[in-house]
Amino acid sequence: MNWQATTLAAGDNVATVLQPIAAGETVAVWTAAGVIAITALEPVALCHKIALADLAAGTAVIKYGQCIGQTTAPVRQGGWVHVHNLRSRRAQAAGGAT
């Protein structure tokens, strides 16, 4: 395998890592447009997500070419995208959407 992470569709701004990633590691990411290199800013566990670009707070996170929620804090390229900085846009109690 010559990449350690993969996107699932064109337009994805996160990739799924196919092996545990250490902080500082260079991660080869498969995208429809070719393999790109990202430097991991922090450890990313198997199957978790890594940001492919700087994402401001409130940015739609795209995986499968679809919105899976939005960032709740700025995430830098190479950052770990998980429940601490990504929230659903659905099934929120009234006024609860952030």
Binding site: A45, K49, I68, G69, H82, L86
Partner: peptide, 9 residues
């Protein structure tokens, strides 16, 4: 824990 985040994902 395994890496999923939102119901959409």
């Amino acid at each position: 824990a395994a890496g999923l985040t939102t119901i959409e994902e």
